[in-house]
């Protein structure tokens, strides 16, 4: 029983961690608090289903299309929508409110389009549903694959951020956006890359969710909510923190759902959120 919760929780947590990673990149590097993040995730999930059912494309191949497409969409959204807001705000604190309201609008826009194109029904695909035995617990193969995708994508990102010049520039902008130009970093370009990368991660997360979970066009807010809570638990802009907090939240949710009531998962998420806000608002893994 406990092993089941543990393994299912970790698998769920992997997806959460990946989603939170993208959101923390967008907020940490681009300073855009993206409330439409969950809708971007869902859009990718719907596209994966459409590719699978319409064109017969296997999800893993579909993923190879969706990830770069997510990057491109994020790149364009930043250039067209976010950059003017950043430029207008200048050094004042307006960007936060403006970006929250603009992405809030984006939330409804994407949700409306999804409803129009794909309808309001629950959607899922049947893909590699047979169980694999792990430590005596039968786990559906699609869940394991989703977990694998998250591990690979998350791991690759962590390595890129910590080991490459490009990652260094991203982290420099995240920490001190005002002094980054002094060392020759194009903040605008880095911010755009950060936003695009975040969107790509949202897309990968959404695509992996589509392989094992049922979802509908109005579920986006829940994904955004959970990703936001994880980002704050891990400390804004903290990549390792987001990974650990994501896995932790997956475990806690699975535990609450099996031991107490599946209707209380969000309540559990919020209780943790509240505890973090009261106890360590800088995040569980933040300094200071």
């Amino acid at each position: 029983m406990l092993t089941t919760t543990l393994i299912l929780g970790l698998v769920l947590g992997g997806t959460y961690a990946l989603l939170a990673l993208g959101l923390t990149l967008q907020y940490g590097i681009s300073r855009i608090m993206n409330l439409a993040y969950g809708e971007m995730t869902l859009a990718a999930a719907f596209v994966l289903v459409a590719l699978f059912q319409g064109l017969g494309l296997p999800p893993l191949i579909g993923l190879l299309v969706i990830a770069p497409a997510g990057y491109a969409v994020g790149w364009m959204l930043y250039a067209v929508m976010m950059r003017p807001l950043v430029a207008r705000a200048g050094t004042s604190g307006r960007l936060e409110v403006d970006s929250i309201l603009a992405t809030f609008g984006l939330l409804f826009l994407i949700q409306g389009l999804l409803l129009l194109v794909f309808g309001a029904n629950f959607t899922s695909i049947s893909y590699l549903t047979h169980g694999v035995n792990i430590l005596g617990v039968p786990v559906a193969l699609n869940r394991l694959i989703a977990f694998g995708i998250c591990l690979v994508a998350g791991g690759a990102l962590v390595i890129a951020l910590t080991r490459t010049r490009w990652g260094l520039a991203l982290r420099a902008v995240a920490q001190t956006p005002n002094s980054a130009p002094l060392v020759g970093i194009d903040v605008n370009r880095v911010a755009r890359q950060g936003f695009a990368l975040g969107t790509a991660l949202a897309a990968v997360g959404g695509a992996s969710i589509a392989t094992y979970q049922t979802f509908s066009a109005t579920d986006g807010v829940i994904f955004t909510m959970k990703a936001l809570v994880i980002v704050i638990m891990g400390g804004v802009g903290n990549v390792a923190g987001a990974l650990i907090a994501g896995l932790a939240l997956g475990l806690i949710e699975t535990f609450v759902a099996t031991a107490i009531d599946p209707g209380l998962t969000l309540a559990a998420t919020f209780t943790i959120f509240l505890a973090v806000l009261l106890w360590r608002p800088q995040g569980l893994f933040g300094r200071g």
């Binding site: 608090m33 409330l35 936060e96 409110v97 929250i100 807010v221 829940i222 955004t224 909510m225 936001l228 809570v229 704050i232 009531d261 209707g263 209380l264 969000l266 309540a267 998420t269 919020f270 959120f273 509240l274 806000l277 009261l278 608002p281």
Partner: peptide, 27 residues
Amino acid sequence: STLRLAGVYFVIFTFGLAELVRQLITW
């Protein structure tokens, strides 16, 4: 719990508050 912190924490918290209250009452 939220107004002592930066505005963004307040926004996020209020974002999910209705859903939280709904779940608690339903339960």
